[in-house]
Every structure is written in structure tokens, then in C-alpha cells.
Simulated assay, not measured.
Amino acid sequence: MKKYITVYATARYYILLILLLSAHSGFAQQVYTFVDTDSLRVGDIFEYTIVVDSRDQLLSYPTEDDFEEQVEVVDRTRYQVHANRDSLVYKLQFFGTDNLTLDRKSVQLSTASGDTTLFTNRVPIFFKTLLAEEDEEFRPLKPIFEFARSIYPYIIIFLILLISGYLIYRYIEQQKRKQDHAKPKYQPIPFENPFLQLKSEIEHLRPIDGLSTFDDFEQFYVEIGDAIRRYLKRVHKIPALEMTTSEITASLKKEFVSAEVISITRKVLNSADMVKFAHFEPTKEQARSTLDKANTFIEIVSESDAEIIDQMREKHDLAESEKSEISNAGQK
């Protein structure tokens, strides 16, 4: 049997060689398809050859994705004897368990009038079983008969799983209730009035009579400047702590803050900047004058910013109310 297969394969190669070397008389577009076997076993590698006769330019052969799932492309080699004949030999490995038909594959050509698609022929290949004829005794003679089994063990297992699931559910629910009862209720955060905070910081400054060294005066002026900057940041939403005095003044003008507030703000912050950055050594009288300006600032913003602070309070209370409702709903 092997001898006949070898003779068949040799004859097939001679035929292929003749087709490749012979010139095509009419130069018509033709596609030929060859395989080197007619039957396969699992794991066999066989050759699948496509020969194209055409004067036109070849664009593309079939790719790995164009082949059936039962075969895998191991290798491919292209042969071109002359300009009018082209061929591609695929080495394919067979992984099927039944007869195989290699479907038509497309070959793209570029012609003067546009692209042309040629199709190969379908190639049937038969599946060769690994069992020898003398091993027929190993084949099943009759369908396997399914014996009836007792259903009671399955019913018992189902009931055990059902009871276990119910007990686990009850345990999880009890743990959840314990956590809900232990979870404290949400306590709304009270509103911090920026005006009262500013006033408290100014009132708790170190007494002027206790200022003796330059470091004392510097700390006094820095605390006044930072207190006013924090107030402007909270109420007027400007990053005053990171801004220079001129930048703060420009931002207040953009916010249409009153000229009176802008003027007193510039005076207080300029005095603080002189001590902090220019190392100006003030006297107690100058420190008292700066403190008076800070108190004047408090008196002015107590009226000009009253409406803004009320809006801030309402917005804060509304947000805290919503948080409290969400927290209470989650505990139910």
C-alpha cells in the first residue's frame, strides 16, 4: 500500500512540474488546485497547492484564516517559474475526526480594468481511522444502555443544600442587622461662620504691649495677614493664601467687591508684607494702627458680606441635611 502511495505522490509532483514549466498558450486566467493525498489521519501533514496562470499581477493568496478549523497551516512556499505562472504550496496539518472538504479559496489579481477574484475548486479528503480492520472488536456494537438510578440520594443532597443555604442567609441577615444597629447615626457638621472665625482670630492676637523683639512683631503681622487672607478665601473664593497683595486686589475688583473693602484690605496686607518680606521693624504704635485697620476691615465686611455668608450657611445646611437623609436611609 505504501508503494502505491509513493508512486501516486511521485506522479503528482511530475504533473505539477510539467504545469509549472509549460507555457500557457492563450494566457487565460486559470487556477489549478492539487493535494498530495486523498485520505488523512489525525495529525497528518499534507500539501495543498494552488497554481495561477495569468499575465496579470497577483495581489494575494489565501491566508491562514481562510482555511477550515480542522486544519492548521504549518508552512507555505511560493514558486514562480516565469511571469505568467505562479504557485503556492501550503503544508497543512489535519486535526479533524471526520471527512474534510476544503472549500473554495479566493485569489486576488490586479488587471487593467480593475481587481479580479479567482476561486479554486473544492477538494474532498476522506478521514482515515486509526483503528485497523482487525481491531473492529474494539468498536462499540450497541448503544450504551443507561441503567435507572435511585433518585433518593439526589433528593437528600438537594434538601441538605437548601437547608444550608437558608441557614447561611439567616446568619448573614443577623450580622447585617447587628452592624446596622452598631453604626452611629450621621451627625451634621455645624456651619463655621467665616466672619466669626476672623473676629475670633483677631481678638486672640498677642497683646501689643507684650511685643518686644522683631520675631514677636513679625508673628503678630503674619497672623493678622493670614487671618484676613483665610477670610477672603472662604467668602470670596479666591486663593488668597497663595497670592500677592496686588493679585488679591485685582481678584477682588473682578468680583465687584466694594472699593471700601478693597482699600482697607490693601492697607492691612501691605503693612503685613512690609514686616514679613521687607523685614521692616515696626513700633508698637504702628502695630496698634495695623490692628485698628484690621478691626475696621471686620466692621466693613460684617455688613457688605452678610448676604454672602447667609447663602453659604443655607448651602451648607442643605448639603448636611441630604447627607443625613442618605445615612438614615442606608440604616433602614
Results as ranks from 00 to 15, higher is better:
T77S: 08
P62W: 00
F95T: 12
K142C: 15
V51P: 02
E69T: 04
F119N: 11
S87N: 12
T97C: 02
V123H: 08
T97W: 14
H82F: 08
F119C: 08
Q57D: 11
V81F: 00
A112I: 15
V81Q: 12
T97N: 13
E137T: 10
A83L: 07
F147K: 08
T129D: 05
S113T: 11
Y61T: 13
E72L: 08
T49D: 10
T111S: 14
E137Q: 15
L58P: 00
T116R: 05
S113A: 06
D103I: 01
E72Y: 04
L102C: 09
I151E: 11
L58R: 03
A83H: 13
F147Q: 14
T97R: 10
V52T: 03
D115P: 09
I144T: 06
I45D: 05
L58K: 00
F145A: 02
E68I: 07
L109A: 05
A83F: 05
R104K: 05
E133M: 07
D115V: 06
L40C: 00
P140Y: 15
R76K: 03
R122V: 02
T101V: 15
E137S: 12
R149P: 04
Y61H: 01
S113P: 02
D56Q: 12
E68G: 08
T97A: 11
D56G: 06
E146S: 09
G96R: 06
R85S: 15
L141E: 10
D65W: 13
F67T: 08
S106E: 04
R104S: 06
L131W: 06
L59K: 02
K91H: 10
F127T: 07
F95M: 03
K142T: 13
L141R: 11
Y152N: 11
E136H: 10
R139Q: 13
V42P: 09
I125F: 09
L88R: 06
D135F: 11
Q108W: 04
I144C: 05
D56P: 12
K105L: 09
I45N: 12
R41H: 12
T101K: 15
F67G: 07
L58M: 00
G114T: 00
K105P: 01
L40F: 05
S54M: 13
L131A: 11
F46W: 08
V51C: 00
S106H: 14
L88H: 01
T49I: 11
N99C: 02
L102T: 03
S113D: 13
R76I: 12
E69N: 13
F126D: 05
K91N: 07
L118I: 03
V74A: 09
E68H: 13
S87F: 02
T77W: 04
L130K: 10
K142G: 06
S39C: 12
